[in-house]
Design a protein around this nucleic acid. Structure first.
Lengths: 168, 168
DNA sequence: GTCTATATTAAGATAGAC
DNA sequence: GTCTATCTTAATATAGAC
């Protein structure tokens, strides 16, 4: 997972994957006969499951709408290791592998956006505005993550997510 | 430029660069003796110059602070071809090539953030708050761009930037 | 300046021993 | 289930003709 997150699909060579896993290349093919493509696909589904479990599932908790959005934000921070890590879904959706994995990722984000939209409606916003708020919220999560990578300043992610938390 | 934007550093092979440029591989080495690394570096500096010229330089215009921020936003939309293209700087800052190009990119974004901060101070915001506003603004630009890639819906970029324009 | 041809290395992938 | 060894292809890079 780390290799794909940091190096992207093309940069994640079997040699690096073998080294990172502690196995030989042939052993990787024993577990993943489909090779690199299968490894990436399994990791993509794991990333979806992780992000669902750590972040978006927390919208279904008890608590107020505001608290559940805050819980989602906290879960996202955990998922990306407080800005030190990446999101594999964002990585795969941007690079040359997008044609192979993009549609499944897009469909998942559409689901998640609907979940967030429902929470903003709960807060009293009308459907159209709730949808805009949901888009804005998720865009902020990924905007903060991306700018933290670009600026490469420890603390930027924490400051920006703290700022976002206040606006909820 | 397009090949690097779409395929990332590792995915941008010399064969693809040759095909896209209409030259043979050997001709690319005539113009760029340093090979792929030199091509990427030249393109990175061109991307900085383009983004400066199309977007951030417009903060220095006449007009109100609000109008100049809107001009920056419009310039950014042009730079990324209304969401259809990528930003090479974001691509290089995220992938495996980050150790080689990241510091120059980070320094440039620090400069740009300072320029945006100054405009928010002009709008009457105190230094601390102006810095937060500037961070938030640039994060939104890149958050919108990234989410447009993830969702892959024509129109999402336009809708989101229109929404952002209203909040200025 | 551009090309063909080629050298060299690394990548993805498989065979078969243990 | 893991390994060494190997195959095939593709990648970076260069030589040298035109």
């Amino acid at each position: 997972m780390t290799v794909f997150q940091q190096q992207g699909y093309e940069g994640a060579t079997l040699a690096k994957l073998a080294a990172a896993s502690g196995l030989g290349k042939a052993s990787l093919y024993h577990h993943f006969p489909g090779g690199k493509d299968e490894i990436a696909r399994v990791l993509m589904r794991k990333a979806i499951a992780d992000l669902q479990r750590l972040a978006f599932s927390r919208l279904k908790g008890s608590g107020s709408a505001r608290d559940r959005l805050a819980a989602l934000l906290d879960g996202f921070c955990d998922y990306v290791d407080q800005g030190r890590g990446h999101c594999l879904l964002a990585v795969l959706a941007q690079g040359g592998a997008r044609p192979y994995y993009g549609s499944e990722i897009a469909a998942q984000f559409q689901d998640w956006l609907q979940m967030v939209t429902a929470v903003f409606e709960e807060k009293g916003e009308k459907p159209k505005r709730a949808k805009r708020s949901a888009n804005h919220f998720v865009e902020q999560l990924y905007g903060i993550l991306l700018m933290s990578k670009i600026l490469d300043q420890p603390g930027h992610f924490q400051q920006a997510t703290k700022r976002l938390r206040k606006t909820l």
